[in-house]
Amino acid sequence: MADERALIRFENVGKIYRTGQIVYEALHDVNLEINDGELAVILGPSGAGKSTLLNLLGGLDGATSGRIFFGDDEITAFDDSRLGKFRAVDVGIVFQFYNLVPTLTAIENVDLMQDLGVKIMNPLEALEMVGLADRKDNFPSQLSGGQQQRISIARAIAKMPRLLLCDEPTGALDTNTGRGVLKILQDQSRVYKRTVVMVTHNSMFAEIADKVIMVKNGTVEEVKINESPKDADELQW
């Protein structure tokens, strides 16, 4: 029986990659639910299928079998154009390696979302939220890794998406910078009531999550509800 609060629902989802003769089953028989406004952490070792799960969730990739729901909509039934609209309106993505457009400044990278025809908050406001308003005119190459990741978050939250997906958002950052990034993401869930799904291999991050989804060998091994998640500021790793 599906939880009525669930924003995301995976039903028997499988994903197979084929490269020539090689067939690789990245996910099989995945069933999970993530509620609206929840901060969910998908945890697992390298190669477990975490990023694949996130890609399916964000509509960056298509499932080989099963169904994925976003609210009442079945993402797996979307065509390419509808998927593009879904990504543009409902999903904000934060990449491990930031993926900023190198020839646009910080504020332009955020403002880029406006080019999608999506209503966004003032780009400067988004930069203020991540504490980088003073670096608005810098190009990505003039910023540190942490700063680039915060710009990436600003870009993702500027359009006020219902779902924020983060793929190893602190993977390329040092501890202090990483903690700052996690704080911003946690606030998105706690303060702005957005659903945040974060993929990581770092088990320490489970402590700040409302829900922890353990993935191993291409399937969900365990789902844990964290009754009293820690503040990101308290994390040590």
Binding site: G58, L60, D80, S81, G84, K85, F86, R87, A88, V89, V91, I93, F95, N99, L100, V101, P102, L112, M113, D115, L116, V118, R155
Partner: peptide, 14 residues
């Protein structure tokens, strides 16, 4: 390639 992928991931149409 990465920029094109990012634009597509962000929701820009083909």
């Amino acid at each position: 390639r990465t920029v094109i992928g990012t634009l597509k991931a962000l929701g820009f149409s083909n």
